[in-house]
Each structure stands twice: as C-alpha cells, then as structure tokens.
C-alpha cells in the first residue's frame, strides 16, 4: 500500500521506472480479471492496455486515496462493462489462446486441470455478465460483496444473489457438459 502511494507520487513526477513497476506489478492480475470478465483474449488485452494508458495520461494529476490495486481493478471492471454494452450481441466465442496451465507436479493432474479451466472459461462466457462480474471480482479479484456492490451501484444482497446464481449456473453448465 505504501509502496503504491510512493509509486503513484513518483509517476506524478513523470518517472518511467515507477510506471513500469506499476505495470509489472498489476498487469497479470488485471489481465486475469479482464479475461474472466470478457473471455476474449484480444478484448481483455485491450482493456488492460486502455486502463494503463489512461492511468499514465492522468499520472500528473492522479491522487491515490485508496488502494491502487482496487482502483485499477475498478477501471478494468468499468471498461469491460463498457465493452459488453457496446456489443450488439454478446459473443460466446472462445479465443484461441489457451489458459495458462496451473502448476501441478503430476503431469496427469496438469492435463485434467487444463481441461477443467478451458471448460470453465467456456461456461463463464455463457452466464449473464452481471453474474460473471460478481463471481470474478469476488473470487479472483478478492473483492468483498460490499465493495462490488458499491462499484456497480446496487445493493449487497443483489450482488450476493448474482454471485449465487452465477455459481449455480456455472455448476449446471459444467455438469451438463461434463
């Protein structure tokens, strides 16, 4: 937290080193969030790109009053939502990029987990965006329901409902195709 504040202050002075460090620190986290929300690799990369570029543009004026991680995550969520809204029809296509294989000492287990993750991504692209957002931001973004509710401007119970419905739907989709 303190490091982030200092990095932001240094960015305000135009430090490229500080900006590179912020990018290195949060790029994978933000890409994972964006990919979880948008499914498509290219769109997710675009969102992360736009978030960092906007942040850099405003670096001279930016005041960090909360956590930088939370701020950037909120920006990803907002831009992802904008992209979803901009689409006339939500694409269900899966991109061609395979998910990163989780670490597993057992090669057989590795293959199983890789298959599971691919099926999970496919299922996630099929649940309503609001539910996906609640699930991804809570489980992957480590955001509390209260925080997601504030971000989306809805009640905590609504977010909790979206989260439960999202998980149920995912479970149903994975079971039906399993």
């Amino acid at each position: 937290m303190l490091e982030d504040k200092l990095l932001v202050l240094k960015c305000r002075r135009g430090s490229k080193d500080a900006m590179c460090r912020i990018y290195a620190k949060y790029k994978d986290y933000l890409l994972t969030l964006a990919k979880g929300l948008l499914s498509e690799q290219a769109e997710a990369e675009d969102v992360v790109h736009d978030v960092f570029v906007r942040f850099a543009r405003s670096a001279g004026q930016f005041q960090l009053t909360g956590s930088l991680r939370g701020y950037l995550a909120a920006c990803v969520s907002n831009l992802a939502r904008d992209k979803i809204r901009a689409k006339t029809r939500q694409s269900e296509a899966l991109d061609s990029v395979n998910p990163v294989i989780p670490r597993a000492d057992n090669p057989e287990q590795c293959v199983i987990e890789r298959e599971e993750l691919m099926r999970l991504r496919r299922a996630m692209s099929q649940i309503p965006y609001e539910q996906r957002e609640a699930v991804v931001l809570h489980l992957k973004g480590s955001m509390k329901f209260r925080e997601i509710a504030k971000l989306q401007g809805v009640s905590v119970s609504t977010i909790h409902g979206r989260y439960r419905y999202g998980l149920d739907k995912l479970r149903s989709l994975l079971d039906s195709k399993g």
């Binding site: 900006m19 790029k27 994978d28 890409l31 994972t32 979880g36």
Partner: peptide
C-alpha cells in the same frame, strides 16, 4: 478453479502496452 485462473501478459503485449503507456506518461508531463 476460478481462483486458479491465471493469465500472464505476453512479451508482445508488454512491449505494446508499455510503449503506449510511456508515451502517454510523456504527454502527461
């Protein structure tokens, strides 16, 4: 499974994004 989701940026993406970010930072200054 969801918690295990993990994406990493490619070197190509890093180069593209960082290039734009640093240019934006320069413009911001």
């Amino acid at each position: 499974l969801i918690k295990n989701l993990s994406d990493t940026t490619s070197a190509e993406m890093d180069e593209r994004v960082l290039g734009d970010v640093l240019r934006a930072l320069e413009e911001s200054k």
